[in-house]
Design a protein around this nucleic acid. Structure first.
Lengths: 136, 136
DNA sequence: CTTGACCTTCCCATGATGGGAAGCCCCATA
DNA sequence: TATGGGGCTTCCCATCATGGGAAGGTCAAG
Protein backbone atom coordinates (compact mmCIF):
# COMPACT_ATOMS: atom_id res chain seq x y z
CA UNK A 1 0.00 0.00 0.00
CA UNK A 2 1.04 3.61 -0.56
CA UNK A 3 1.80 6.12 2.17
CA UNK A 4 -1.70 7.60 2.01
CA UNK A 5 -3.34 4.35 2.93
CA UNK A 6 -0.76 3.58 5.60
CA UNK A 7 -1.51 7.00 7.04
CA UNK A 8 -5.26 6.46 7.05
CA UNK A 9 -4.90 3.04 8.63
CA UNK A 10 -2.44 4.09 11.32
CA UNK A 11 -3.66 7.54 12.18
CA UNK A 12 -0.19 8.97 11.53
CA UNK A 13 0.00 11.71 8.90
CA UNK A 14 1.99 11.02 5.76
CA UNK A 15 4.17 13.97 6.67
CA UNK A 16 5.03 12.38 10.00
CA UNK A 17 5.60 8.95 8.52
CA UNK A 18 8.27 10.41 6.26
CA UNK A 19 9.71 12.34 9.18
CA UNK A 20 9.86 9.27 11.42
CA UNK A 21 11.69 7.50 8.62
CA UNK A 22 14.13 10.37 8.23
CA UNK A 23 15.11 10.28 11.89
CA UNK A 24 15.42 6.51 11.89
CA UNK A 25 12.48 5.88 14.19
CA UNK A 26 10.96 3.51 11.66
CA UNK A 27 12.64 1.61 8.86
CA UNK A 28 12.67 2.87 5.31
CA UNK A 29 10.16 0.84 3.30
CA UNK A 30 10.84 -0.51 -0.15
CA UNK A 31 10.00 1.64 -3.14
CA UNK A 32 8.28 1.20 -6.46
CA UNK A 33 10.15 2.00 -9.66
CA UNK A 34 8.69 5.50 -9.38
CA UNK A 35 10.13 5.91 -5.86
CA UNK A 36 6.76 5.56 -4.16
CA UNK A 37 7.05 4.14 -0.65
CA UNK A 38 5.38 0.75 -0.26
CA UNK A 39 4.10 -0.37 3.14
CA UNK A 40 3.02 -3.74 4.49
CA UNK A 41 0.52 -4.52 7.24
CA UNK A 42 3.36 -4.90 9.70
CA UNK A 43 4.45 -1.35 9.05
CA UNK A 44 0.96 -0.12 9.86
CA UNK A 45 1.21 -2.10 13.07
CA UNK A 46 4.41 -0.31 13.97
CA UNK A 47 2.95 3.07 13.06
CA UNK A 48 -0.03 2.44 15.32
CA UNK A 49 2.37 1.54 18.10
CA UNK A 50 4.12 4.87 17.62
CA UNK A 51 0.84 6.72 17.46
CA UNK A 52 -0.31 5.14 20.70
CA UNK A 53 2.94 5.96 22.47
CA UNK A 54 2.67 9.59 21.29
CA UNK A 55 -0.95 9.74 22.43
CA UNK A 56 0.23 8.66 25.84
CA UNK A 57 2.71 11.51 25.96
CA UNK A 58 5.95 9.68 25.25
CA UNK A 59 8.51 11.75 23.35
CA UNK A 60 9.90 10.43 20.09
CA UNK A 61 13.09 9.42 21.87
CA UNK A 62 11.11 7.55 24.50
CA UNK A 63 9.06 6.00 21.75
CA UNK A 64 12.29 4.87 20.14
CA UNK A 65 13.20 3.04 23.35
CA UNK A 66 9.75 1.50 23.58
CA UNK A 67 10.02 0.24 20.03
CA UNK A 68 13.37 -1.32 20.85
CA UNK A 69 11.86 -3.01 23.90
CA UNK A 70 8.92 -4.14 21.83
CA UNK A 71 11.19 -5.77 19.30
CA UNK A 72 13.43 -7.30 21.94
CA UNK A 73 11.80 -10.56 22.95
CA UNK A 74 14.43 -11.34 25.53
CA UNK A 75 14.03 -8.21 27.61
CA UNK A 76 12.37 -8.46 31.02
CA UNK A 77 8.96 -6.90 31.60
CA UNK A 78 10.62 -5.02 34.45
CA UNK A 79 12.50 -2.94 31.87
CA UNK A 80 9.27 -1.87 30.25
CA UNK A 81 7.57 -1.18 33.54
CA UNK A 82 10.47 0.92 34.73
CA UNK A 83 10.22 3.17 31.70
CA UNK A 84 6.46 3.40 32.05
CA UNK A 85 6.60 4.28 35.72
CA UNK A 86 9.18 6.98 35.11
CA UNK A 87 6.95 8.43 32.45
CA UNK A 88 3.94 8.32 34.75
CA UNK A 89 5.88 10.36 37.28
CA UNK A 90 6.77 12.91 34.60
CA UNK A 91 3.18 13.20 33.45
CA UNK A 92 1.84 13.59 36.95
CA UNK A 93 4.48 16.18 37.83
CA UNK A 94 3.55 18.23 34.78
CA UNK A 95 -0.15 17.87 35.52
CA UNK A 96 0.42 19.02 39.09
CA UNK A 97 2.44 21.98 37.89
CA UNK A 98 -0.32 23.13 35.55
CA UNK A 99 -2.91 22.64 38.24
CA UNK A 100 -0.82 24.69 40.66
CA UNK A 101 -0.69 27.53 38.14
CA UNK A 102 -4.45 27.32 37.73
CA UNK A 103 -4.94 27.34 41.50
CA UNK A 104 -2.77 30.41 41.90
CA UNK A 105 -4.66 32.24 39.19
CA UNK A 106 -8.00 31.15 40.57
CA UNK A 107 -7.02 32.52 43.92
CA UNK A 108 -6.09 35.85 42.40
CA UNK A 109 -9.24 35.95 40.29
CA UNK A 110 -11.38 35.33 43.36
CA UNK A 111 -10.31 38.72 44.65
CA UNK A 112 -11.00 40.51 41.39
CA UNK A 113 -14.42 42.09 41.33
CA UNK A 114 -14.82 41.52 37.63
CA UNK A 115 -17.01 44.54 37.12
CA UNK A 116 -16.68 47.89 35.40
CA UNK A 117 -14.14 49.20 37.88
CA UNK A 118 -10.50 49.07 36.87
CA UNK A 119 -9.02 47.74 40.12
CA UNK A 120 -7.90 44.16 39.76
CA UNK A 121 -5.52 42.36 42.10
CA UNK A 122 -4.54 39.92 39.36
CA UNK A 123 -2.43 42.41 37.49
CA UNK A 124 -1.14 44.19 40.57
CA UNK A 125 0.11 40.84 41.78
CA UNK A 126 1.86 40.24 38.47
CA UNK A 127 3.68 43.51 38.79
CA UNK A 128 4.81 43.16 42.37
CA UNK A 129 5.12 39.49 43.27
CA UNK A 130 8.60 38.33 44.18
CA UNK A 131 10.15 35.92 41.71
CA UNK A 132 9.11 32.32 41.88
CA UNK A 133 11.86 29.84 42.55
CA UNK A 134 13.97 29.18 39.48
CA UNK A 135 12.90 26.17 37.51
CA UNK A 136 15.22 23.20 37.57
CA UNK B 1 21.48 49.96 34.39
CA UNK B 2 22.79 47.53 31.76
CA UNK B 3 20.94 44.50 30.47
CA UNK B 4 22.82 42.18 32.84
CA UNK B 5 21.56 43.94 35.91
CA UNK B 6 18.04 44.23 34.52
CA UNK B 7 18.17 40.51 33.89
CA UNK B 8 19.35 39.72 37.42
CA UNK B 9 16.72 41.96 38.97
CA UNK B 10 13.84 40.72 36.86
CA UNK B 11 14.64 37.06 36.51
CA UNK B 12 14.42 37.31 32.73
CA UNK B 13 17.53 36.26 30.81
CA UNK B 14 19.33 38.91 28.78
CA UNK B 15 18.69 36.78 25.74
CA UNK B 16 14.95 36.89 26.34
CA UNK B 17 14.93 40.59 27.13
CA UNK B 18 16.41 41.27 23.70
CA UNK B 19 13.96 38.86 22.13
CA UNK B 20 10.96 40.46 23.83
CA UNK B 21 12.15 43.78 22.51
CA UNK B 22 12.55 42.38 19.00
CA UNK B 23 8.95 41.13 18.88
CA UNK B 24 7.64 44.37 20.33
CA UNK B 25 6.49 42.89 23.63
CA UNK B 26 8.48 45.50 25.52
CA UNK B 27 9.69 48.87 24.39
CA UNK B 28 13.20 49.42 23.09
CA UNK B 29 15.19 51.16 25.82
CA UNK B 30 17.55 54.04 25.18
CA UNK B 31 21.16 53.28 24.36
CA UNK B 32 24.56 54.56 25.39
CA UNK B 33 26.93 55.94 22.79
CA UNK B 34 28.35 52.41 22.54
CA UNK B 35 24.88 50.99 21.79
CA UNK B 36 24.50 49.42 25.22
CA UNK B 37 20.86 49.14 26.27
CA UNK B 38 20.03 51.26 29.33
CA UNK B 39 17.15 50.23 31.61
CA UNK B 40 15.28 52.09 34.32
CA UNK B 41 13.54 50.69 37.40
CA UNK B 42 10.23 50.84 35.56
CA UNK B 43 11.56 48.53 32.88
CA UNK B 44 12.51 45.99 35.51
CA UNK B 45 8.99 46.29 36.83
CA UNK B 46 7.61 45.45 33.39
CA UNK B 47 10.02 42.57 32.97
CA UNK B 48 8.94 41.12 36.28
CA UNK B 49 5.35 41.39 35.14
CA UNK B 50 6.22 39.41 32.03
CA UNK B 51 8.15 36.87 34.02
CA UNK B 52 5.24 36.36 36.36
CA UNK B 53 2.77 35.96 33.51
CA UNK B 54 5.06 33.38 31.89
CA UNK B 55 5.44 31.56 35.20
CA UNK B 56 1.68 31.32 35.31
CA UNK B 57 1.62 29.71 31.92
CA UNK B 58 0.46 32.61 29.76
CA UNK B 59 1.85 32.58 26.24
CA UNK B 60 3.75 35.59 24.97
CA UNK B 61 0.70 36.71 23.00
CA UNK B 62 -1.48 36.43 26.07
CA UNK B 63 1.18 38.26 28.02
CA UNK B 64 1.04 40.99 25.42
CA UNK B 65 -2.69 41.38 26.08
CA UNK B 66 -2.13 41.41 29.82
CA UNK B 67 0.47 44.14 29.45
CA UNK B 68 -1.97 46.18 27.41
CA UNK B 69 -4.63 45.72 30.09
CA UNK B 70 -2.11 46.63 32.75
CA UNK B 71 -1.24 49.87 31.01
CA UNK B 72 -4.86 50.70 30.27
CA UNK B 73 -6.20 52.42 33.35
CA UNK B 74 -9.67 52.78 31.92
CA UNK B 75 -10.33 49.10 31.27
CA UNK B 76 -12.75 47.22 33.49
CA UNK B 77 -11.51 44.57 35.89
CA UNK B 78 -14.01 42.27 34.15
CA UNK B 79 -11.77 42.30 31.06
CA UNK B 80 -8.85 41.07 33.08
CA UNK B 81 -10.88 38.49 34.91
CA UNK B 82 -12.29 37.16 31.67
CA UNK B 83 -8.82 36.55 30.27
CA UNK B 84 -7.69 34.97 33.51
CA UNK B 85 -10.66 32.64 33.72
CA UNK B 86 -10.20 31.50 30.14
CA UNK B 87 -6.59 30.74 30.90
CA UNK B 88 -7.53 28.84 34.02
CA UNK B 89 -9.79 26.65 31.92
CA UNK B 90 -6.94 26.00 29.48
CA UNK B 91 -4.55 25.10 32.25
CA UNK B 92 -7.00 22.77 33.93
CA UNK B 93 -7.87 21.09 30.65
CA UNK B 94 -4.21 20.43 29.94
CA UNK B 95 -3.62 19.20 33.47
CA UNK B 96 -6.56 16.83 33.17
CA UNK B 97 -5.30 15.54 29.85
CA UNK B 98 -1.88 14.74 31.27
CA UNK B 99 -3.45 13.10 34.28
CA UNK B 100 -5.65 11.00 32.02
CA UNK B 101 -2.56 9.79 30.16
CA UNK B 102 -0.91 8.94 33.45
CA UNK B 103 -4.00 7.07 34.61
CA UNK B 104 -4.15 5.03 31.43
CA UNK B 105 -0.50 4.11 31.74
CA UNK B 106 -0.81 3.34 35.41
CA UNK B 107 -3.66 1.01 34.62
CA UNK B 108 -1.58 -0.80 32.02
CA UNK B 109 1.44 -0.94 34.30
CA UNK B 110 -0.64 -2.49 37.06
CA UNK B 111 -1.05 -5.55 34.88
CA UNK B 112 2.63 -5.82 34.04
CA UNK B 113 4.48 -8.22 36.31
CA UNK B 114 7.65 -6.22 36.18
CA UNK B 115 9.86 -9.22 36.66
CA UNK B 116 12.38 -11.13 34.54
CA UNK B 117 9.71 -12.51 32.23
CA UNK B 118 9.19 -10.77 28.90
CA UNK B 119 5.39 -10.65 28.87
CA UNK B 120 4.13 -7.14 29.40
CA UNK B 121 0.63 -5.92 28.59
CA UNK B 122 1.85 -2.36 28.28
CA UNK B 123 3.52 -2.89 24.94
CA UNK B 124 0.95 -5.33 23.65
CA UNK B 125 -1.65 -2.69 24.28
CA UNK B 126 0.38 -0.13 22.35
CA UNK B 127 0.50 -2.43 19.38
CA UNK B 128 -3.14 -3.38 19.29
CA UNK B 129 -5.25 -0.60 20.78
CA UNK B 130 -7.68 1.05 18.43
CA UNK B 131 -6.92 4.65 17.66
CA UNK B 132 -7.90 7.24 20.19
CA UNK B 133 -10.33 9.88 19.00
CA UNK B 134 -8.67 12.47 16.84
CA UNK B 135 -7.56 15.52 18.69
CA UNK B 136 -9.47 18.73 18.04
C1' DC C 1 47.89 49.28 28.93
C1' DT C 2 46.23 44.77 29.68
C1' DT C 3 42.86 41.61 31.19
C1' DG C 4 38.55 39.93 31.94
C1' DA C 5 33.81 40.68 32.27
C1' DC C 6 30.21 42.57 29.81
C1' DC C 7 27.86 44.13 25.79
C1' DT C 8 26.49 43.94 20.63
C1' DT C 9 24.52 41.35 16.46
C1' DC C 10 23.90 37.20 13.90
C1' DC C 11 23.14 32.45 13.04
C1' DC C 12 21.79 27.88 14.56
C1' DA C 13 19.36 24.33 17.44
C1' DT C 14 15.65 22.37 19.98
C1' DG C 15 10.64 19.07 19.43
C1' DA C 16 6.92 17.74 16.75
C1' DT C 17 4.21 19.14 13.45
C1' DG C 18 1.98 21.51 9.47
C1' DG C 19 1.93 24.29 5.01
C1' DG C 20 3.01 24.72 0.56
C1' DA C 21 5.61 24.77 -3.96
C1' DA C 22 7.42 22.36 -7.95
C1' DG C 23 7.41 18.46 -10.36
C1' DC C 24 6.53 13.50 -11.42
C1' DC C 25 3.16 9.38 -11.59
C1' DC C 26 -1.01 6.73 -12.10
C1' DC C 27 -5.70 5.79 -13.22
C1' DA C 28 -10.27 6.69 -14.94
C1' DT C 29 -13.16 8.83 -17.98
C1' DA C 30 -14.38 11.35 -22.14
C1' DT D 1 -5.40 8.32 -26.66
C1' DA D 2 -5.46 12.46 -24.36
C1' DT D 3 -6.53 14.96 -20.32
C1' DG D 4 -7.59 15.90 -15.70
C1' DG D 5 -7.35 15.21 -10.96
C1' DG D 6 -5.50 13.22 -7.11
C1' DG D 7 -1.52 11.11 -5.00
C1' DC D 8 3.30 10.81 -4.62
C1' DT D 9 8.21 12.86 -4.29
C1' DT D 10 11.66 16.27 -2.23
C1' DC D 11 12.74 20.66 -0.30
C1' DC D 12 12.15 24.77 2.28
C1' DC D 13 9.77 27.49 5.73
C1' DA D 14 6.93 28.38 10.02
C1' DT D 15 5.55 27.53 14.60
C1' DC D 16 6.77 28.59 20.19
C1' DA D 17 10.06 30.08 23.60
C1' DT D 18 14.41 29.51 24.67
C1' DG D 19 19.45 28.68 24.75
C1' DG D 20 24.25 28.25 22.66
C1' DG D 21 27.92 30.20 20.69
C1' DA D 22 30.92 32.99 17.50
C1' DA D 23 32.99 37.36 16.32
C1' DG D 24 33.85 41.66 17.69
C1' DG D 25 33.35 46.14 20.39
C1' DT D 26 33.49 48.39 25.33
C1' DC D 27 34.40 49.39 29.97
C1' DA D 28 36.55 49.34 34.50
C1' DA D 29 39.98 47.68 37.64
C1' DG D 30 44.59 46.64 38.40
Amino acid sequence: MNIGEASARSGVSAKMIRYYESIGLIEAPSRTAAQYRVYADDDVHTLRFVRRARDLGFSLEETRELLALWHDRSRASADVKKLAMAHIRDLEAKAAELQAMADTLRHLAAHCHGDHRPDCPILSDFATQPLLAEKA
